[in-house]
């Protein structure tokens, strides 16, 4: 048997495809809508930021920076997140406050809005709270993200294990442990049908189990809907 025949034999009896064109079409359309929304919002934000920067930085005649006249109010507003984002961050902070003492969240910990990395959030932003408890660095990241297509998870290596599970409601969870010994990194992710993804990470200690992190990630309060 030559190589061509071997390859053809290897793919001779494929199982029924797990590919649903209708489902893929729906996903693409949803993604296109959210991308358009993000581009529109981003473009508007960029225009506002440039306008604000231009007013603030434009030198006057002779190169002297602009100063408001005595008694006049400052025209350049402070740079801040979109009011809607601030509202969402405040709502997530309220949920953070409700966590029990087991997670050791310091009183001043709040959610802030950050630019998402790697295009990981469909709208480009994520909401993050970070704190330290018992020497373990904890972080919760809430972002808009679609449920991943892959139905597997890890190619578990010698230093990393990953497990994917599906909830009864159709949500998808991943729990990952990386590193061994006294200072592993543990992570739980919860992808929801409303396109919210919650990632909880505990790095540098064994004080939190992945089950605890997953329970935390699954709290309904971490939602970006509404």
């Amino acid at each position: 048997m030559n190589l061509q025949e071997m390859l053809k034999t290897a793919v001779a009896d494929p199982p029924p495809p797990a590919i649903d064109l209708d489902d893929l079409t729906r996903r693409v359309r949803r993604r296109q809508v959210s991308t358009r929304w993000a581009v529109g919002t981003g473009g508007l934000g960029l225009a506002v930021a440039m306008a604000v920067a231009a007013v603030g930085l434009a030198p006057l005649d002779g190169g002297a920076p602009w100063q408001p006249e005595s008694g006049a109010t400052q025209l350049v507003p402070p740079v801040s997140a979109d009011p809607r984002q601030e509202l969402l961050a405040a709502r997530l902070t309220a949920q953070l406050r409700e966590l029990g003492p087991e997670f050791g969240v310091p009183a001043g910990t709040v959610f802030t809005v950050e630019r998402g990395e790697w295009g990981a959030a469909t709208d480009g932003y994520w909401y993050v709270a970070r704190w330290s408890s018992g020497g373990v660095q904890l972080a919760i990241i809430v972002r808009r993200a679609l449920i991943p297509l892959e139905d597997g998870c890890a190619k578990n290596g010698p230093d990393m294990s990953c497990e994917r599970t599906e909830g009864a409601d159709g949500s998808v969870n991943y729990v990952v442990t990386e590193g061994a010994g006294a200072a592993p990194s543990r992570q739980a992710e919860n992808y929801r049908l409303d396109d919210t993804a919650v990632m909880v990470t505990a790095a540098g200690g064994t004080a939190f189990t992945v089950e605890q992190l997953l329970t935390l990630a699954q709290l309904p309060g971490w939602s970006l809907v509404g």
Binding site: L7, V28, E150
Partner: peptide
């Protein structure tokens, strides 16, 4: 995709993602 991935599930994932890219 199966010959590349060596696994039918992974092949379906890769094919689905490629189809979505094509559609876009």
């Amino acid at each position: 995709a199966y010959l590349l991935c060596g696994d039918w599930h992974a092949a379906d994932d890769v094919t689905s993602t490629a189809v979505m890219k094509l559609m876009r």
